[in-house]
Nucleic acid binder design. Structure first.
Lengths: 210, 210
DNA sequence: CATCATATGACATGATTATGTGATTGGCTA
DNA sequence: TAGCCAATCACATAATCATGTCATATGATG
């Protein structure tokens, strides 16, 4: 039996979903509240549900803020967003905050039911459109990471040494070259990157700008 | 009509999927090859398919390498992975390389068919288990960003100065304090972070470890 | 073959950083 | 109120870094 809680301020939608889910033989949905604040009150007093369906636009605290707080207090509750918002930002923030699923409100009741089952089984239900945005964010973030530096392999070695926090002496030891050679490489690196301190090289490197 | 190509070295699986898909009234699957290399040859000569189903483990070039090359040459082809691998690394690499969907090989033929339709409509089909890993990667990456440093606000200011590549002198100017005060703060920062160079502070900071 | 980029090395010097050892002030709290 | 901590500043010194100038060797490329 999967127990479910709902946080949704639209009474019509809320009671529709609640009644439908509670009607399922493997589910129980007794708690359907208006706001995160009320849900937090409830969680303090009563047994926790397995799954929470959560809106984003709510009176008082937003659903996204709510995720963070609820997940921190009750990490075992699986949270699924059920909202009209499909902009990357809200999706992303929800997932980072700890949501494990993200459905749009036009999702049919049987699909919601299936998604809850998926969630309880350790999956992450998302509509394909949402998944697409998640993936896009991925490749946007990660692809930038190769601005093709014109550093030679050896220079890149030296940069790695710097990033590891090594002194010239230690870099020289690591690659078994003289400290003056390290200096020479660093000089060239500075020229190529238009910087003039270790600090800037490290920062550039860790920002993926090399 | 959705045209489909398959890259899969297991002949049995390949021809099974091909025949099933080609049988669908809204699909055409005429091209099913062993390797990325062969597919690249084919793409050069003939019309491109809308969707490519791609294995990862292949003779010659791996499917993941293949994604990058194919996507670069033919960005309009949607690529869906169909593989036995479900480790985060392979999933992640595939998505970064440009795959838009990721299914496991135990997926049923009708589900594969549906997924292809989803893909063609701009969605991103993934099994819920895969989606879960994608989401986990997300929150792993992003959540770390607040390991609650015990640095004071002022110390954090100084760290920001370091990250910006400033010298002690410039940091002193920025915050209108003496250079010795900057030194003093840096001393304390080093103690708290257990480091002893600017370089390490910058690295820690940019790695989100502060 | 001449040239250029890369990798290696040396010597020198001024600038910056790392670290030790202090001190003073203001705010918070046991 | 006594004590602690954050923030401020000072002086000193050794280590490290940034930069200038120069040199040798090797491999690739026109």
């Amino acid at each position: 039996m999967i127990t479910i809680g709902i946080v949704e301020d639209n009474v019509k939608i809320r009671s529709l979903i609640q009644r439908y889910l509670d009607m399922q033989e493997n589910m129980s949905c007794k708690v359907a509240l208006d706001s995160v604040e009320e849900m937090l009150e409830h969680l303090k007093e009563y047994d926790n549900p397995d799954v929470l369906l959560m809106d984003i636009q709510l009176p008082g605290m937003s659903g996204i803020e709510g995720i963070g707080i609820i997940k921190k207090e009750y990490p075992d509750i699986e949270i699924m967003m059920l909202t009209v918002y499909h902009d990357s930002h809200k999706i992303f923030d929800s997932l980072v905050a700890g949501a494990s699923g993200y459905l749009l409100k036009h999702t049919s009741l049987p699909e919601i039911k299936e998604s809850i089952e998926t969630l309880a089984e350790g999956g992450a239900p998302m509509s394909p459109q949402i998944a697409r945005k998640v993936i896009q964010h991925f490749s946007d973030t990660e692809k930038k990471k190769k601005p093709e530096s014109n550093l030679t392999a050896r220079e890149q070695d030296i940069v790695n040494g710097l990033v590891d926090g090594l002194s010239y002496k230690l870099i020289a030891d690591r690659y078994d070259i003289s400290i003056d050679t390290v200096r020479a490489h660093i000089r060239n690196i500075y020229k190529k990157l238009h910087v003039n301190s270790k600090a800037e090289v490290i920062a550039k490197s860790l920002r993926g700008e090399i």
